[in-house]
Computed example of a mutant assay.
Amino acid sequence: MRFNSSLVLRAAVLASLSGGVAQAQDVVRIGHVAATSGVIAHLGKDNENGARMAVDELNAKGVLIGGKRYRIEMLAEDDAGDPKQGTTVAQKLVDAKVRGVIGHETSGTTIPASKIYFDAGIPQISPSASNPKYTRQGFNTAFRNVANDEQLGAALAKYAVQTGKARQIAVIDDRTAYGKGVADEFIKNVKSAGQGARVVTQQYTTDKATDFGAILTAIKATKPDLIFFGGMDAVAGPMLRQMKQLGMPLRFMGGDGMCSDSMARLAGDGMADGQVICAEAGGVDAQQQKGMDDFRAAYRRRYGIDVMTYAPYAYDAMHAMVAAMQQAGSTDPAVYLPALAKVRHKGVTGVTAFDARGDVKDGRLTLYTFKSGKRQRLSVIQ
Results as ranks from 00 to 15, higher is better:
residue 1 M to W: 13
residue 2 R to L: 14
residue 4 N to I: 13
residue 8 V to M: 10
residue 13 V to T: 12
residue 18 S to R: 09
residue 19 G to W: 12
residue 21 V to E: 10
residue 24 A to E: 07
residue 27 V to L: 05
residue 33 V to E: 06
residue 36 T to N: 10
residue 37 S to T: 15
residue 38 G to D: 10
residue 39 V to L: 15
residue 40 I to Y: 06
residue 41 A to P: 02
residue 42 H to T: 12
residue 49 N to Q: 15
residue 51 A to F: 06
residue 53 M to C: 10
residue 53 M to E: 03
residue 54 A to R: 00
residue 58 L to R: 02
residue 60 A to Q: 14
residue 60 A to T: 11
residue 62 G to K: 02
residue 69 R to H: 13
residue 70 Y to E: 00
residue 71 R to A: 11
residue 87 T to M: 06
residue 90 A to P: 06
residue 101 V to H: 05
residue 110 T to L: 02
residue 111 I to C: 11
residue 111 I to Q: 03
residue 113 A to H: 04
residue 113 A to L: 02
residue 115 K to G: 08
residue 120 A to D: 08
residue 121 G to H: 11
residue 128 S to A: 15
residue 129 A to Q: 10
residue 129 A to R: 01
residue 134 Y to M: 11
residue 138 G to I: 12
residue 141 T to Y: 03
residue 143 F to M: 02
residue 147 A to Y: 01
residue 150 E to F: 13
residue 155 A to P: 01
residue 156 L to V: 14
residue 156 L to G: 07
residue 164 G to I: 03
residue 170 A to W: 02
residue 173 D to P: 01
residue 173 D to L: 03
residue 177 A to F: 03
residue 182 V to H: 03
residue 185 E to D: 13
residue 192 S to D: 11
residue 196 G to A: 11
residue 202 Q to P: 01
residue 204 Y to E: 10
residue 206 T to N: 09
residue 208 K to E: 12
residue 209 A to M: 10
residue 211 D to F: 08
residue 214 A to C: 00
residue 216 L to E: 01
residue 216 L to Y: 00
residue 218 A to T: 15
residue 220 K to T: 00
residue 220 K to D: 01
residue 222 T to D: 08
residue 224 P to V: 05
residue 224 P to E: 10
residue 228 F to N: 07
residue 228 F to M: 07
residue 228 F to H: 13
residue 230 G to A: 09
residue 232 M to Q: 12
residue 237 G to T: 11
residue 239 M to F: 06
residue 244 K to F: 08
residue 253 M to A: 14
residue 255 G to Y: 01
residue 261 D to E: 14
residue 263 M to E: 05
residue 269 D to E: 14
residue 270 G to D: 07
residue 272 A to E: 13
residue 272 A to S: 14
residue 273 D to M: 04
residue 279 A to D: 02
residue 279 A to L: 10
residue 280 E to M: 14
residue 280 E to D: 13
residue 284 V to R: 05
residue 286 A to C: 03
residue 292 M to T: 06
residue 298 A to D: 13
residue 305 I to M: 09
residue 305 I to Y: 10
residue 306 D to T: 07
residue 308 M to Y: 04
residue 308 M to H: 07
residue 315 Y to G: 01
residue 317 A to D: 08
residue 317 A to F: 08
residue 319 H to I: 06
residue 320 A to G: 05
residue 321 M to T: 08
residue 321 M to W: 01
residue 324 A to L: 09
residue 325 M to D: 08
residue 328 A to T: 05
residue 336 Y to M: 11
residue 342 K to T: 11
residue 342 K to S: 12
residue 342 K to V: 08
residue 346 K to Q: 12
residue 349 T to R: 05
residue 352 T to Y: 04
residue 354 F to Q: 02
residue 354 F to D: 02
residue 355 D to L: 05
residue 359 D to H: 02
residue 363 G to P: 01
residue 366 T to V: 14
residue 366 T to Y: 03
residue 367 L to R: 00
residue 376 Q to C: 13
residue 376 Q to I: 15
residue 381 I to C: 00
